[in-house]
């Protein structure tokens, strides 16, 4: 999933300070699962903003709505009937959702209420960790299912580096060395030969080095 975290409340307050009527829009997908911008968090942020403005002696009109997916035009269309009653939109979706709204409602200012962090997986309740950088040419088939792009701090294709220590990455004792994990997996699978083979330099064009990426599926358009 795409993970996100709520922005510092001070930053959000500053964004919306000039407006009296806010449309606060959550998203039912990734940001709901990582507890950053689903219906629950929309309610909590609305409550916080109400408390803040009441303390300043004002009231602010906040309409709460959580869309099925904010990165899909057909769901963003659902805001049509609400848009005129808002001076600004505050989005709790990832950056993809914020931009979909900005592209559709061109005359309304849109502000992000979360910081989009990374593509990751849940390690346990309340803990998420980066797993993929969307490099466009997945290597997991040759690295035993452990990603060296997202999980090796140096994005080495032939690791580990000299900094690996007791199986942990030199950046922090809390970070597993990706190449230690790769080696352990390949060994467990009896695929040590893969590890011996030198990987050629990675082509970073599909990873975004060639500019913004798109997928066009002619069969679906």
């Amino acid at each position: 999933m795409i993970t996100a975290e709520q922005k510092p409340i001070e930053e959000i307050i500053e964004y919306i300070a000039p407006y009296d009527r806010i449309l606060l829009v959550g998203c039912n997908e990734c940001v709901t699962v990582c507890a950053a911008g689903g219906r629950k968090e929309v309610g909590l942020l609305a409550s916080a903003l109400h408390l803040h403005s009441l303390k300043q002696g004002k009231t602010v009109d906040i309409k709460e709505i959580t869309l099925e997916r904010q990165c899909d035009p057909e769901y963003v269309e659902e805001l049509v009937s609400l848009i005129d009653s808002a001076d600004a939109i505050l989005s709790m979706a990832c950056g993809c959702g914020v931009q979909t709204i900005a592209g559709r409602y061109k005359d309304k200012p849109v502000y992000p209420a979360v910081n989009t962090k990374f593509m990751g997986a849940s390690e346990s309740q309340g803990i998420w960790a980066e797993r993929c950088k969307g490099c466009g040419d997945c290597l997991l088939g040759v690295t035993g299912g452990v990603c060296p792009v997202a999980r090796c701090s140096k994005q080495l294709m032939n690791g580990p580096c000299g900094g690996t220590s007791n199986g942990q990455c030199e950046i922090s004792p809390d970070t597993d060395c990706a190449w230690r994990l790769i080696w352990e997996r390949l060994k467990a699978l009896g695929m040590e030969k893969r590890y011996i083979e030198v990987m050629v330099a990675k082509d970073w064009r599909p990873a975004g080095g060639g500019g913004p990426r798109r997928i066009v599926r002619e069969d679906l358009t």
Binding site: S47, A48, L51
Partner: peptide, 11 residues
């Protein structure tokens, strides 16, 4: 009890 219940009480 969720955070929202505490917040709403104060609000």
């Amino acid at each position: 009890v969720d955070a929202i219940h505490l917040m709403k009480a104060l609000e």
